[in-house]
Amino acid sequence: MGRRNIGSTPVEVTELGFGASVIGNLYRVTPANDAQAAIEAAWEAGIRYFDTAPHYGLGLSERRLGAALRSRPRDAYVISSKVGRLLVPNEEPRGVDTEGFVVRDDLRRQWDFSRDGVLRSIEDTLKRTGLDRLDIVYLHDPDEHWRQAAGEAMPALAELRDQKVIGAIGAGMNQSAMLARFLRETAADVVMLAGRYTLLDQSALDDVLPTAEELGKSVVAVGVFNSGLLSRDRPAEGMKYDYQDASHALVARARAIAEVCAAHGTTLPAAAIAFPHTHPSTVNVTLGMRTAEHVARNAELNRQRIPEGLWDDLRVQGLIRSDVPAANGPGRSARCP
């Protein structure tokens, strides 16, 4: 599996990453054995980049991921987590978390992008994972907190990076404009871009992607299936797009893209995974994987060669933007070597 460095840092990530939100019981319970098996399958598939966050299952994802990786050689993999949501005791628990995770709500999330909040969050994550360090730390969804996130949190992370406590730093969001600001105005090395450079949404070409390319910084792409609409060979009504029911027009467009994929001998999900790599600043695509079967499917999709003519046809038919780069990144004819 191909690997690329995060910006000018020594941190190197595999082209496919393991997103650990779902093993934090996102939307439904994931049995502990399934979570363990998924992480083991990812390792066997050659995945060496694993992403988690305190937000995911109120710490459950971090605990499960740390336990599964603890016996692996620490220098053999890269792990990222996030800051900005401290976990604190919940004085008024209702029994189950109200933010999408099927876990007890004995804890609650508290927004905090202060220097002390960042340091406390990282310390808590290390305790939950049982690991000795984090390789990448992202600011998590700082949309409403730019001033504190850019003015306090990012300088705190930069200090830890400069002390070699952390390898790389950045921010992760569902929008691209503010991510471009983080790359241009702060010490960020990398951004985690959710859903804004996909077969259905190339808005990141207006801001964060050219900024990353200009500055020699990096992008990790997540949400490449746009909440599910691009995850099947044949999209159907009732599937999700950006966490909501997809409109009829979006389903029709996804089907049109799927038909072009089929004409080129590939599938919509395989093209969806490959597409972010059309931009040279994209170093990784990370996917949520709940079971070993999910890992096997995604690893196989990632291995499939995507004919370059597919992107040309999609441009000509107006199904993707005309300014989508023609190549699959530097040195990539279809997949990383």
Rank of each mutant, 00 (worst) to 15 (best):
D206W: 00
L215D: 02
V222R: 08
S203C: 13
G195Y: 05
V224T: 15
L199Y: 06
G195E: 01
A194K: 15
V224W: 09
D206H: 05
A204S: 12
F225W: 09
D206C: 04
G216V: 08
G228I: 00
S231A: 15
N226Y: 00
A204G: 10
L205C: 11
L230E: 14
E214C: 00
L199F: 03
G228N: 03
N226Q: 15
G228P: 03
T211I: 05
A194F: 12
S203M: 10
L193M: 13
S218C: 03
D201Y: 01
K217R: 14
G223I: 01
R196F: 09
V224I: 15
L215Y: 14
V220R: 07
S218W: 09
A221N: 03
S203E: 14
D201H: 02
A212C: 10
L205S: 12
Y197K: 06
G216C: 07
A221E: 02
S231G: 15
S218K: 05
S231Y: 02
V220L: 15
F225Y: 14
E213F: 08
A221F: 04
S231C: 05
T198I: 11
A212S: 12
G223L: 04
V220T: 11
V219S: 07
V219A: 04
A204I: 06
V220F: 08
T211V: 13
Q202P: 05
E213I: 00
V219Y: 06
L209G: 15
T211K: 10
L199P: 02
D201G: 04
F225P: 02
D207A: 06
D207I: 00
Y197A: 11
L229Y: 07
V219H: 07
N226M: 15
N226K: 11
K217T: 05
S227H: 02
L229W: 02
L205F: 10
D207W: 09
P210W: 10
F225V: 00
L215N: 07
A212R: 05
S227T: 00
F225H: 10
V208M: 04
L205R: 12
L199M: 05
V219P: 05
A194T: 13
F225I: 01
G195T: 01
V220D: 04
L205T: 13
V224H: 08
L193P: 04
G195M: 05
S203F: 08
K217S: 09
L193C: 12
T211C: 12
L215Q: 07
A221Y: 00
L205M: 12
D206F: 00
E214A: 05
L230D: 15
V208A: 06
L215P: 13
G195L: 01
D206P: 06
V224S: 10
G216E: 07
A204V: 04
S203H: 04
G223K: 07
L230R: 15
L193F: 14
R196C: 12
A194V: 15
S203N: 07
K217E: 09
D206N: 13
K217Y: 11
R196L: 11
P210T: 09
L209Q: 12
L200T: 10
L229A: 10
V208S: 07
V222N: 03
L230P: 15
S203I: 14
A221G: 06
L215K: 07
Q202N: 04
G223Y: 01
Y197S: 06
V219Q: 04
